[in-house]
Simulated assay, not measured.
Amino acid sequence: MINPADLNQKVKMFKNGNSYAFRISKKDREFLGADTDTRFEKIVSPDGKEITFKKIEKLRPDVLKTATQLYEKHSDLMKRLEDL
């Protein structure tokens, strides 16, 4: 198992087309369980000294299915709520 403290390192920003980027190492990617479809939320501190990236967990397909079933089961209630 990878110790997260072992992943801490200094990184350099580089030019990537018209943008700038930071490189994520293979070990970082493996630890995060990330691939090219993984989405992150970027948070910049008010003083501009920190940037934090938080992995956005994928929505489980069964959650959407369950929500749809509940909506359909209680469609009369949902319709009344829409009219409020």
Rank of each mutant, 00 (worst) to 15 (best):
M1N: 04
N3M: 00
L7A: 01
Q9E: 02
V11N: 06
F14E: 04
F14G: 00
F14D: 07
K15C: 01
G17T: 00
G17K: 02
N18W: 09
S19G: 01
Y20P: 00
K27S: 01
D28F: 02
D28G: 03
R29N: 14
R29E: 13
L32G: 03
L32N: 03
L32P: 00
T36V: 13
D37G: 15
T38D: 07
T38G: 00
R39V: 10
E41N: 11
K42M: 06
I43P: 03
I43F: 05
V44L: 14
P46N: 10
P46A: 12
D47T: 14
G48P: 06
G48M: 09
T52Y: 02
K54L: 13
K54F: 14
K55C: 05
I56R: 11
E57Y: 12
K58E: 15
V63R: 14
L64C: 02
T66H: 14
T66Q: 15
T66Y: 15
T68K: 06
T68P: 04
Q69R: 14
Y71V: 01
E72W: 08
K73H: 11
S75C: 11
D76T: 02
L77Q: 13
M78C: 14
M78L: 12
R80F: 07
R80C: 00
R80E: 06
R80I: 05
R80H: 11
E82Y: 03
L84F: 04
L84W: 03
